[in-house]
Write a protein that binds this DNA or RNA. Structure first.
Lengths: 143, 143
DNA sequence: ATAGATGCAAATGTTTTGCAGGAAA
DNA sequence: TTTCCTGCAAAACATTTGCATCTAT
């Protein structure tokens, strides 16, 4: 079984917060780790339901929130009003194709340093950021 | 009466789309132009209600959508899940204070050119973007 | 035994839609 | 007089909460 690191991390988090280890939480973490980036809540629910028909929507929501608190997941809000989750990893931004829905991640040091400069100029302490470019990806731009 | 340019623009848009000029639309545009940047739907509704108690929520929503279509307003979604509107103007980004809620606009040529470079690298045609830094503003960072 | 978790149903908050009546063209 | 608008109430969504029950510790 893979993802031992993440499972371990969750176990530690639960323990240190007097929370309980349950099959539901285990199952949802499993599904999340295998689902890839940018899954929606709906997505998560469907996938979880596949293997565990008795798990409710509520538990999926609550557990995703838990995973965020534990630092394993990050909540993202793109412009379509649906919450998405991704596995927590380094600083990056997104290109979002408004035709096919594809989401491409990118990273840019130049932008990061520009952000720092701006923040400094305004005496602003940056905790997190969003940076998304919306448009048509290479496959869709000519259609 | 100010904002003649915007009123004219709306009139032209309505005319060219076989839509009708109504007091509600006029009133909502008026309120919007005087409300400043980043008003929420709720905000708009309250302000409109002040002068015109008979105008319904539905009409406010519909008219804000119309103003967006007409290019007079832009819809923004920050991370609190509430739609905000701003008067359409040049390319800019935002610093959002998560303590006091203040929203500061900024512009940065360096970031813009980096964005273009990224888009080019991925063969991506950018139509619009969001770029927001969340954190504590200069007044809140020491509290 | 007990604090915490679950699942359902109901509530929430925001935005949209159906529809009958009303107003602009 | 026809087409488009309006306001209300109800629906639609995504998400959250109350609560009785169940389960890990």
């Amino acid at each position: 079984m893979s993802h031992e690191v993440e499972k371990r991390a969750l176990a530690l988090y639960l323990e240190s917060h007097q929370l309980k280890q349950t099959k539901q939480r285990e199952a949802i973490l499993d599904v999340f780790l295998q689902a890839g980036q940018h899954v929606t809540s709906e997505d998560m629910f469907q996938r979880v339901r596949n293997d565990h028909p008795s798990i409710g929507y509520t538990t999926v929501y609550r557990t995703m929130k838990l995973l965020c608190d534990a630092g394993l997941a990050v909540e993202r809000h793109f412009d379509d009003g649906v919450t998405r989750y991704e596995i927590e990893h380094e600083h990056h931004d997104h290109l979002v194709c408004t035709k096919c829905g594809k989401i491409i991640e990118f990273e840019c040091k130049m932008i990061e340093s520009a952000q720092n400069e701006i923040a400094e100029r305004y005496g602003f302490l940056t905790l997190r950021h969003r940076h998304e470019l919306y448009g048509h990806c290479s496959s869709c731009r000519d259609d």
